[in-house]
Computed example of a mutant assay.
Amino acid sequence: MVEPSFHDTAAGRRIAYHKTEGKGPGVVFLGGFKSDMEGTKALALEAWAKQAGRSFLRFDYSGHGQSSGAFTDGCIGEWAEDARSVIEAVTKGPQVLVGSSMGGWISALLIRELGKKCAGFVGVAAAPDFTEDSMWRDLNEIERAKLKREGQIFLPSDYGDPYPITRKLIEDGRRNLVLREPLQMPFPVRLLQGTADADVERQVALNLLDNIRGDDVRLTFVKGADHRFSDEACLALLIQSVEEVLA
């Protein structure tokens, strides 16, 4: 495995990343909740970028993968800060953001902040506002009281150990909601969603579609695809969608 480079943010967090040099607009992959930059989609996009001679960036948020910090210390706003800091530090010119799951939420926050540096958006099982509209919504009164009292609870996960959910994560997520007002995206947007996704309801994809203001916005449902969206056909569709946005 090639060792990553590191970027130190103004907040003192050390972000691990891999940068592929090439032509622009560049492509940036933003991973999901408790995921890292060594996932199937990130590596498939990197291989495509190298073959296409395209600039590409993948990285780990703080508390994820090879970056500094503990996962339980982080939250949506800080992970968005990590993403913005490394993007501004190591990329040049416009970038197409590819956001997977939570990365779709992070992308929406960055698009509001980065303006013309964003040249397009591809959402893969994008999960904006999930801390409020999924996690908090689905907690019962006992769990909510325990979270408020103890500052942390654990939720079961299909991907390994239970997820530690902190009061900080929920409260910060509430301050960073993006589906409560229109999202201005004046560039090509492609949203990809599997119908067998057990983590992100298909209504989330429809809500995101309805909320985006733009002239070139498409949502594609893939029958039978799950949340990972990483089999051969899904990866081919992801790459095709990125190429469409770049074109």
Rank of each mutant, 00 (worst) to 15 (best):
A198M: 08
A125G: 15
V245R: 04
T72D: 12
A119H: 07
I111Y: 02
A89Q: 11
Q51I: 02
K223S: 13
A236N: 07
V28Y: 01
E244R: 12
G214S: 09
L206P: 00
P128H: 10
T166M: 08
N140A: 09
A42Y: 08
G104E: 07
A247Q: 09
K19C: 04
R213P: 01
G77R: 10
V204G: 03
A83T: 00
G123Y: 02
E21K: 14
V86M: 03
R13K: 14
R84F: 04
A47G: 05
H18R: 10
A42G: 10
P25N: 11
G12H: 05
A225T: 01
W79P: 02
F154D: 07
S55C: 09
G120C: 06
S241W: 04
D216A: 14
G65D: 06
P4M: 10
P94Q: 06
A44S: 15
A119F: 01
E78S: 13
G123C: 07
I15N: 02
V204Y: 01
C118Y: 01
V178L: 05
S134N: 10
G99R: 05
I106G: 03
P188L: 09
A247Y: 03
A125F: 02
R137H: 12
K19T: 00
A108P: 00
F154W: 08
D60N: 15
T131I: 10
K148H: 07
R175G: 05
R218T: 15
F29H: 09
D215I: 01
G32C: 09
G115A: 11
M135T: 14
A83S: 15
G32E: 06
K41I: 09
A70T: 11
D210W: 04
G32K: 05
